[in-house]
Amino acid sequence: MEETIFKGLMIASLTLVLTALAGMILIMLIKGAPALTLSMIMETPRGGYYLGKEGGIANAIVGSLYLSFGASIIAFLLSLPMAFALQKDYSGRQFARFTRLVLDVLWGVPSIVYGAFGFVVMVYFGIRASLLGGIIVLTLLMLPIMVRSMDEVIRMIPAELKEVSIALGATKLETTFAVIFRQGLPGIVTAVLLAFGRGIGDAASILFTAGYTDYIPRSLYDPVASLPLAVFFQIGTPIPEVQGRAYASALILLFIVLIVCVASRLLARRFSRKIIR
């Protein structure tokens, strides 16, 4: 009896959660799809993003891609050695444990704190809100996500596999890159995509540091538009055309995040064919 009631409640709860997901996607489709035209994707806004009725969101799409690709590449280059360094081949157990904890806490730090920190540092160095500033802050945001996700995967690799390579006369470095890296590749790809998805969707961290503009940036020191901020700023106007741009931006952003989520699973499966379990 009790079991039946609870089971009913459980199924109801799960349905509620899944309905929320379906509902959100549905709302985005209904609102965003009509606004999503070719010119929306291809053009930059005319007459100011906040007031101008003409033009599209190319500035935000390109800007977001610049920001998150830039940050992902830098974060990847930094986090790969860090993830290796957390393993016991390179660091003492206590220090690694401590650093893992630090990274876990950093992972949870609200992105607005990263934004405020980045802003202070940029003011100190005299950098204006720019592509460079946005990339730096997003890199900081992505770093703990990438390092810890890679670390979890690399940690699961059996020690015997390393031994095989060492026994053949490979150095630690050669073992790390020729064997550990390849064995962990599916997980590493997933980690990068996870961080990329987080980075491209984050608004609070780049609010102060990347700025917003109608144009596509020409240098690292230009301010840059981004999809999350395109939604955030443009939804606030009373002009329906501008709101349409916000909906379209949101739909594109959602689309990118969905693609990244699915792609990470498919790629991980593809890359895992050659690894042993």
Binding site: P158, E160, A178, V179, R182, Q183, I276
Partner: peptide
């Protein structure tokens, strides 16, 4: 080694 661990390659 005791158990074979093929390297993750061809």
């Amino acid at each position: 080694s005791q158990r074979p661990y093929p390297l993750p390659m061809s």
